[in-house]
């Protein structure tokens, strides 16, 4: 992942799509169903975030200019 505006814009689209699915499901069914779907999405986001962070640190340690590197 790059740390720039374009990468964050991609997340606007992802969160927008997720929000639209929650809104759509709530309007089609009941608020409880939408809330539960929202919770599933939040948990999925947390799992993704955790796995991404772990992977990032693993890769970072292998880089010469990473944490604990020689540069």
């Amino acid at each position: 992942m790059n740390f720039n505006e374009a990468a964050v814009f991609k997340w606007v689209l992802i969160v927008g799509a997720a929000g639209a699915s929650v809104i759509g499901l709530t309007l089609l069914t009941r608020p409880l169903v939408g809330a539960l779907w929202g919770l599933v999405l939040v948990i999925a986001g947390c799992v993704y975030g955790y796995r991404w962070t772990r992977e990032w640190w693993r890769n970072a340690k292998d880089r010469p200019d990473g944490p604990g590197g020689s540069a």
Binding site: V22, I23, T26, L27, P31, G34, A35, G38
Partner: peptide, 9 residues
């Protein structure tokens, strides 16, 4: 997130 939570749910 605020809109979906406060206005829709």
């Amino acid at each position: 997130i605020v809109f979906a939570t406060v206005y829709i749910l």
